[in-house]
Amino acid sequence: MGKTYRIKDIAALSGVSTGTVDRILHNRGKVSEEARQKVEAVLKEIDYHPNLIARSLALKKQYHLFTLIPSYQPGEYWELFMQGVDKAEQELFSYNINVTSLYFNQFDKSNFDKLTDELLAADCQGVVIATLFKQGVLELIASLDEKNIPYVLVDAYIENTRSIAYYGTNSYDSGYIAGRLLLEQITDGEDIATFRFIRKGEANATQVQIRETGFRAYLSEHNYSGKIHSVQLHADNQEENFRVLDAFFEANPDLHSGIIFSSRAYILGEYFNKRKSNSLFKLIGYDVIEKNVTYLENGLITHLIAQRPEVQGFNSLKALFRHLVLQEQVPPINYMPIDVLIKENIKYYNNYI
């Protein structure tokens, strides 16, 4: 076991007073930059870590953190994200950290805005925010900045914010890769379809927009000459979706490839499965959730692009802990691997934290 360093030991090594060391360790009072540099150099050299559990218990300080993410049904993407959050909360229990989760309707911006009012009125020391509604997020974080409340962004990165960290994929590159995967499967000039889900307040989720931008960029750079059709679907109205899809494929009988930029590729898989048609359709989707994996394994989805939601949830909460309790600087942009999965390798995939 390494040596235990007391404040007076650090002061002696730094050549400053014990009072100066105390102010630096507890981030209170003013100290000169020269003194701070001396102390921080010693702390780094001795790999100093305070007894944070003892400190937090002694001070009885409570950290009330929030997550603001989409509501979900069992087996959906955001459930996996929350599994990571829950694991982090369990690990941090000794530090008096409690998490409250607020869930918004990801297809209705007004619901998101309503919950932001609730969040801003709460006793909140930090928040993890899913960035589906960019304008709503920008309005929220402007208020958080005024209150000096730290926040972590997940789902899609938003530039020029004061977030302490972002966890997620590079959405543009993710879409760019999807463009390559699809273009390599089709003949020159063959039409393709993009399937989107209707939302209230903002036409598309932030990440969906950025993914599609990257997707179209790849096609443009590689001289794609076909037509891209846009099909609007509902998240929870199968009957209406079947009507829309029947009409679309009747009007475009030679179209056999497409992409969904969200975790709901299974909706099209369900359609093909029940209609017993388009078995040769080449569909690319996102995220390793059970329903998507079913259609990847039976060939109705050709590729899934994954982004490890459990890891995102775990690391985003730990980032707030590191910032608030450890007073560490967290890397501002933390990109997840962009995992490309096919039916031949899906059984080997794991998402261990």
Rank of each mutant, 00 (worst) to 15 (best):
V293K: 10
I338W: 00
E344Q: 03
K276N: 15
L219D: 15
I46A: 10
T100K: 04
G201I: 09
P70D: 07
V137Q: 06
A54M: 10
L182G: 06
F195Q: 00
S316T: 13
D113N: 09
I289C: 04
N273D: 08
N96G: 08
D155R: 13
L59P: 04
S316F: 07
H229L: 07
A88W: 01
F261W: 08
G2I: 15
E202W: 01
A12T: 09
F314E: 06
Y271D: 15
N223R: 14
L25V: 02
I333T: 14
A165Q: 08
G214V: 11
T18N: 10
I7E: 04
E270I: 14
I305T: 03
S257R: 04
L119A: 09
P150V: 12
I342A: 08
H229Y: 13
R23E: 09
G299N: 10
M1Q: 12
N298M: 11
H49P: 03
A121L: 14
G126I: 04
L119E: 11
S171C: 11
S71H: 13
Q307C: 08
E139L: 14
F197E: 01
P70H: 05
N27Y: 03
E344Y: 11
Y335S: 15
D155H: 11
G19L: 12
N223K: 11
V21I: 09
L341A: 01
Y286A: 12
D117N: 08
T169L: 15
N223E: 15
F249I: 01
T187C: 03
G189V: 02
S56W: 05
L183V: 06
S14P: 07
L183D: 04
E33I: 15
I301H: 02
L132Q: 14
L115H: 03
D108C: 00
L317W: 12
A41C: 02
L43D: 12
Q62G: 01
E328Q: 13
E184M: 06
S163A: 13
I186H: 01
N298H: 12
S101K: 14
K60W: 00
